[in-house]
Design a protein around this nucleic acid. Structure first.
Lengths: 132, 132
DNA sequence: GCCATACCTGCACGGGCGTACGGGTAACGT
DNA sequence: ACGTTACCCGTACGCCCGTGCAGGTATGGC
């Protein structure tokens, strides 16, 4: 009861392992940083968007209709996905006549491309057998 | 009209760039693979869960109350986050008296730990200035 | 000029996710 | 034994997200 409770009456003001708590606190990312990170990861955490990015990473450039065709998804879904990614600044579309070719932005976060798009895909190929 | 339409009447059955479409199709990950991948990424795409995993990666072991304390989050939120992660098989909790110490699973996907937890955090520290 | 195409926008609907709350169980202290 | 502590579970609520439909704009072909 010395420190005020965090929520729900009172968490427990006697840390069980104060050393670890302090250590975790010292090296932990802040809520803001976590917010930014997760909002970025959320962009990848959708089947359509993930496949869009993956496709654009492999073939450089693709227009909306062809993208929908390659993905086997509705043009609406792809259009929406592209809008999100475009708003986030991960892809850009340049108009060529009446078609719009999309590609990854020049300043696409390299770690994201390298680690998530290319490496993590391996995880999808070998089921992580989370549940047993 | 050769190929049947995907949705909404007819996307466009004249691919603008058939070569790229074929290439993308050949190397693209399937919907199922994407599903598995994104459901995994979704686990990271939440501030509480991301910070939980990050904390457990750094200090090895932590009980629920201390975790909530270190994160400055409500015990409910942490408890829910842990449940999700536990169900997914990313963390395990071993009971010691009336406290439950959580840690990352032994078979925690290494790419995930290495690339997302450790490398991607750098992205959160340097704002990706998506929008300009 | 006219019509079809390629894409975008706005709106409405359904579903799933995260949080807060109440209540429950097992363990420790006295 | 009794009360407290630490955690878990189930429920209810609110919110955001993704999809589909309808309509709009601009470009290219005839």
């Amino acid at each position: 009861m010395s420190t005020d409770a965090v929520a729900r009456g009172g968490a427990h003001d006697h840390p069980v392992d104060p050393a670890r708590v302090a250590a975790a606190r010292a090296r932990l990312i802040s809520s803001d940083e976590a917010q930014r990170l997760t909002s970025l990861l959320s962009l990848l955490a959708d089947p359509v968007r993930a496949r869009i990015l993956y496709a654009l990473d492999t073939v450089e450039e693709l227009c909306v209709g062809d993208l929908a065709l390659a993905l086997g998804a509705s043009e609406d879904a792809v259009g929406y996905g592209l809008r999100i990614l475009r708003t986030a600044g991960l892809v850009v579309g340049c108009r060529a006549g009446r078609v719009v070719f999309y590609r990854l932005t020049a300043d696409f976060p390299q770690p994201l491309r390298e680690h998530c798009l290319r490496r993590l895909v391996e995880l999808s190929r070998t089921p992580p057998d989370d549940d047993f």
